[in-house]
Design a protein around this nucleic acid. Structure first.
Lengths: 329, 329
DNA sequence: TGGCAAAATGTTAGCGCGAACATTTTGTTG
DNA sequence: CAACAAAATGTTCGCGCTAACATTTTGCCA
């Protein structure tokens, strides 16, 4: 910056003013500075700026890079939403949702003096890490425990599970089986809770859920089990990938979907419409999640207070041909 | 840091030494400092450290957050590989692979004084942005133009396309149709080139590729076109999602896979094994890509020179039941 | 017990920037 | 053209840290 100032024949402060778009710099001066910057290939040092100002226009995100649709879509939407408000997003990847790793990732963000923090922490262990925060950095959690006191944005998983199950019951099924995700995920827990509530309301029999790990492979295993249960006519899978595995297993066992078994998934991955048959599923609006998250965060950043708000995004049923009334013998 | 030093009764330099794990600090002193740090909730200021040292242990990544399998998997693997070498990864998302956005993202990384730069830029326009770099920051491109002079790691897309096509020809098909990805992606261009080479070697007829956009929906459209081509018996889709769409379209048109039409995809997404029928596809080792990338980058960082090396990762054919010999009438 | 090297700790300076205030220049008005 | 406000520009300082060098303490041996 000193070099630029010297070359342009001004003080470093004037260079600073040009960089930050302050008014009160005459146009010819501005031009001279710009030329000097270009000439020298000058790049402002972000570290020095952070040090001098004490803040940055960066939002720290703690998330797990994953090829799972939900997490990946949320991350993309989050980045867009932040950019729209002039913030950039810095993602710290965590290999597992382990408490120590989450803590370390949060710590690195705090060391960077991020303006705010978004933690995507769908499991209990990660939540504990959040508590170890000093608490003076604006923070919003995504998909965290709905019962926690912190500021929170989440898809209403329970409602989604309820809608899926209700849809199947309304179609005429006497009860609905469930293939759940890993039990330590809130998403999984709450979707199962919605499933259970719908069954209870209908006075339907509640079978023990089959637990998968979100993968199509685990869905396939669950599907084989289901195929062996002769009176099962409907199943709600906790995500679309597991539903895909179920579809395959059922077909191999000679049970047709939807004639012999109706299937509902969760997520509405872009491919769900092209499964065989097309999958009825629950769609969550990840853009809404991201937008709400950034808004809550900015409110905290601007006011300096945490208000403990929680935003629930209601998911919607997307009806396709994997659901039909049960075949009556 | 000053506060910590005062509380521990040492100089700030000693605190610095404790933080950085320098030797030559007596154990009791270390302990006092640690206690003081914990007491005050002290967090080292990363910006100040970068300013003082002029470098950081951060690798800047420019990529597009995407729910596409390849990009997402690469990103995750990259982060793991960097972490294994004590570097953390900072991802700047770009909404589109537009030149201006890529330039801006690179610029932000440079402002942060990252130790090295990884650009995942599968299209031409993004490559131009890379050229506008000053060139003194270590840089590795992933999936960039194989003909560019820069340091590069890529999956050998051409070989993948060749393997896929060859596999179908070997199975007895007279020729192979192709559903390509967007024409501005190198991945797409090179996979098509491999397809063409295999056909040329076999002296097979080369039809005009059908162009999709990587999505299952576009694959579905292509599948409908293929279903209308009565003498088509084999198709190579440029990714698995499009292959899924093709499978659906063919089924709807009453053409069985693999009896009436053999299908090969690309990527081996985790779900491919559970498509109906299970999809024969080409698997690229994203971990290998990530590992090679980080190694090249560290070599540059340590030696300070760019050697213009290029690493090609050979993909493999994964054989499943979506391929069969053509049905002879 | 003094002397001396090595280990432990302290002191000073500066990284590049923006905030706050100081100074100079410009434009306007009577 | 003086007088003055406003605009433009300059100067000084410190953000929190590490590097480099300076000083003190420790341990060991003659």
């Amino acid at each position: 910056m000193t070099d630029v100032a010297a070359l342009a024949g001004v003080s470093h402060q004037t260079v600073s003013r040009v960089i930050n778009g302050k008014s009160s710099v005459r146009e010819p001066t501005k031009a001279r500075v710009r030329v000097a910057m270009a000439e020298l290939g000058y790049r402002p040092n972000a570290a020095a700026r952070v040090l001098a100002t004490g803040t940055s226009r960066v939002i720290g995100v703690v998330a797990r890079f994953s090829t799972l649709y939900g997490p990946a879509a949320t991350l993309a939407a989050l980045s867009d939403a932040a950019l729209a408000h002039g913030f950039s997003v810095n993602v710290e990847n965590i290999r597992t949702l382990d408490k120590k790793l989450v803590e370390a990732a949060i710590g690195r963000h705090l060391n960077q003096r991020v303006a705010g923090l978004v933690v995507i922490a769908p499991v209990e262990s990660a939540n504990e890490a959040i508590d170890s925060l000093s608490g003076d950095t604006p923070l919003v959690c995504i998909d965290a425990d709905p019962d926690r006191p912190s500021e929170l944005v989440a898809v209403d998983q329970e409602l989604g599970g309820y809608l899926a199950t209700k849809h199947l019951l309304t179609a005429g099924h006497r009860t609905v089986w469930h293939v759940a995700g890993p039990s330590d995920w809130f998403d999984s827990r709450d979707r199962a809770a919605g499933w259970r509530r719908a069954l209870e309301e209908a006075g339907a029999e509640i079978s023990r859920p089959i637990t998968g790990d979100w993968s199509a492979a685990s869905g396939y295993d669950a599907g084989q089990i289901l195929a062996g249960i002769s009176d099962a006519t409907a199943v709600f899978a906790s995500n679309d990938h597991m539903a895909l595995g179920i579809l395959r297993a059922l077909r191999e066992s000679g049970r047709n979907v939807p004639q012999d078994m109706s299937v509902v998934g969760f997520d509405d991955v872009p491919e769900a419409a092209f499964f065989i048959p097309p999958l009825t599923t629950i769609r969550a609006d990840f853009n809404a999640v991201a937008t709400a998250t950034i808004e809550l965060l900015l409110a905290q950043i601007n006011t300096g207070t945490r208000r403990g708000e929680r935003t629930l995004i209601a998911p919607q049923l997307v009806s396709r041909s994997s659901v039909a009334p049960p075949y009556v013998r």
